[in-house]
């Protein structure tokens, strides 16, 4: 029998190139995750400042952090703001996406553009503009969590629409027509045909909005007033090195949580894709 060759084909990259790129990618991943890993390491470091050399293992910072009233308040504020803003943004986006995807809307280009503008406006600008509005403008809500929540709805809207609209548009219109043909009302059609198909996208839009809000600091720092959300609390704390050590443990927990949430959002979205393809 003739000799067998190693015949792995290298059309787009040479074997050497592949080795080099793999090394580059590995290095990239290391640097990418290094900060996160360092944070986790320092959350267990006995020293009072996050600096080398490490000074031994401890969980006291976790204890301190969890017993800190201000941290708990900030966290709870963030959770409320994020949940509410994500829910509202998703609902409004869902309502708006349906006619934009399906119906003849006069001035669709203008509405779509308006909807996406918040994506381009620098958050600093939106932050100060909302500060003026809430403190001095016609909507004197004042500064606080409601204001932050509203600000986050504005920013999360385009994301939610960008997730929901293509999904709704991709659903075969004949499904709707079939539902109507079988006697369903508009609401029944939506509840029984449309909704089951877009539930994953709704969840994913909610999660993305939630993750965004729980990490948003620029807008919140302008309009949170004396009710800091967690990122605002963190931001003010990080400016003072002596305060940072108590912040790291919660930060670590938050990183892990938002990491998991983000992955959940992605997994749900992919499952939704599969559902639509009928697999």
């Amino acid at each position: 029998m003739a000799r067998r060759r190693n015949t792995e084909t290298f059309v787009v990259i040479s074997p050497t190139g592949k080795v080099l790129l793999t090394a580059f990618f590995a290095l990239f991943l290391v640097v990418l995750y290094l900060p996160t890993v360092l944070l986790i390491v320092f959350s267990f470091n006995a020293g009072t400042v996050a600096a080398f050399p490490l000074e031994g293992l401890t969980t006291k910072w976790y204890g301190l952090a969890l017993h800190s009233e201000s941290i708990r308040q900030a966290l709870w504020a963030s959770v409320r703001v994020a949940t509410l803003s994500a829910a509202i943004a998703t609902l409004i986006a869902l309502m708006a996406s349906y006619p934009l995807a399906r119906r003849h809307v006069r001035g669709k280009a203008v509405i779509s553009a308006l909807m996406l503008v918040p994506l381009v406006v620098p958050t600093v600008v939106l932050g100060v503009a909302l500060l003026i509005l809430f403190q001095k403008g016609v909507i004197p809500i004042g500064l606080g969590l409601i204001s932050v929540m509203i600000g986050h709805v504005v920013i999360a809207l385009p994301f939610a629409v960008l997730i929901l609209l293509p999904r709704i548009a991709s659903i075969d219109k004949r499904l709707e027509e079939a539902a109507y043909d079988l006697g369903a009302s508009g609401l029944q059609m939506f509840r029984r045909v449309m909704l089951p198909l877009i539930v994953p996208s709704i969840l994913s839009a909610f999660l993305i909005s939630f993750v965004f809000s729980i990490d948003e600091v620029v807008i919140a720092s302008f309009i949170a007033g004396d009710q800091p959300t967690y990122p605002v609390y963190l931001y003010s704390g990080l400016k003072f090195p002596e305060k940072t050590q108590t912040l790291i443990p919660v930060a670590t927990i938050m990183i892990v949580l938002s990491f998991l949430l983000a992955i959940a959002a992605e997994v749900i979205r992919r499952r939704g894709d599969r559902k639509l393809e009928g697999r």
């Binding site: 029998m1 003739a2 000799r3 067998r4 060759r5 015949t7 084909t9 059309v11």
Partner: peptide, 19 residues
């Protein structure tokens, strides 16, 4: 030439071009 045979040879104009 996009695939290399696991076994055997390809010749083109009498010249072995397998790899």
């Amino acid at each position: 030439g996009f695939e290399v045979p696991t076994i055997g040879n390809v010749t083109l104009a009498g010249e072995d071009v397998t790899e």
